[in-house]
């Protein structure tokens, strides 16, 4: 394995991937997301203020997570088979382009796209949440005033309470955690598409592994503490090894409940994400080098 890395070349490949995906109109989901967020923000005015904000966060971050994983799987699964079927791979790899640079370019391209999509969705979501939060605060203060209990302390307390349920930096950390998760899924899907014979197969397996990965903690516990038979134990061990531990990145619920993500926990997530990315990238490369074109 030659260890040449040409950043301009990887950038060229990554940008080509981004434009390729953009022209597939893949960003249309952004619009769908905005509709969902606005609907979640303003469609249920009957609930109490706290519930309203929580619902908005629940729905939005849930949609964010779902979209990012779906994009990660579908976009990535399309890339290699496309290039292979269209035979664009021949002309690309006939240039002095090492195969690992090609793979890295594809991976980076998808990550850039997902990252940009998440930033846009985060902005839209933050905007709606902030609007909603100001509205809720204004309503509650008005209600207090009507009751005649709008003492400065009561208003301050209300402000603090709504503020905690509203827009915080912590929420953005939740979005970054979602990005980590999507990045791991992207690398995983790329690895699968390096040996899969069809796009559909890649998509199905990638989703399956992702879903199993969310329950990896359970599978591991079952293996370590359960009293199951040898076969079941081996199977669970195998599953625990081949699936990524998605539970690591599940901080969204905590974030929604207003709990802060500590720098330590965040660093841990980042480290795990990088480890998975590197691991999958290396295995992808080993598979791709051997691949018949």
């Amino acid at each position: 394995m030659s260890a040449s890395f040409s950043l301009p070349r990887i950038r060229t490949l990554a940008m080509a991937t981004v434009t390729q995906l953009l022209r597939m109109k893949i960003m249309a989901f952004l619009l769908v997301f905005c509709v969902i967020v606005v609907a979640a923000g303003f469609a249920f005015p009957v609930m109490n203020p706290e519930q309203q904000l929580k619902l908005l966060k629940d729905v939005s971050l849930g949609a964010l997570q779902l979209f990012s994983i779906v994009i990660a799987v579908c976009a990535t699964a399309l890339l290699l088979p496309r290039d292979l079927e269209d035979r664009t791979l021949y002309t690309i790899l006939a240039k002095p382009v090492p195969r690992h640079e090609y793979l890295l370019g594809k991976l980076l391209g998808v990550l850039i796209l997902i990252g940009a999509g998440l930033v846009l969705m985060d902005i839209a979501f933050s905007g709606v949440l902030w609007l909603r939060q100001s509205l809720v605060l204004a309503q509650s203060v008005a209600a207090l005033q009507q009751e005649g209990t709008a003492t400065p302390e009561a208003v301050a307390q209300l402000k603090e309470f709504v503020g905690r349920q509203g827009l915080t930096w912590n929420l953005h950390l939740g979005v970054v955690a979602i990005f980590f998760k999507a990045a791991v899924v992207t690398a995983l899907t790329l690895m699968i598409s390096c040996f899969a014979s069809s796009t559909l197969f890649t998509i199905i397996i990638a989703f399956l592994v992702t879903i199993l990965g969310h329950g990896q903690g359970l599978i591991r516990d079952y293996f370590l503490t359960g009293h199951a038979g040898v076969v079941k134990k081996l199977l669970s061990a195998l599953l625990a090894v081949v699936t990524p531990d998605m539970g690591v990145f599940d901080v969204v619920d905590n974030v929604i409940n207003g709990e802060t993500v500590t720098p330590g926990a965040f660093g841990f997530m980042a480290a795990i994400a990088c480890t998975y990315l590197a691991g999958y990238a290396v295995v992808s490369h080993l598979l791709f080098v051997e691949k018949e074109l």
Partner: peptide
């Protein structure tokens, strides 16, 4: 080796591009 391709131009049969 990748270097072997630096001085070659290849036109595959039925080429296709992005």
């Amino acid at each position: 080796r990748v270097e072997s391709r630096s001085e070659v131009g290849f036109l595959p049969e039925n080429p296709y591009f992005y």
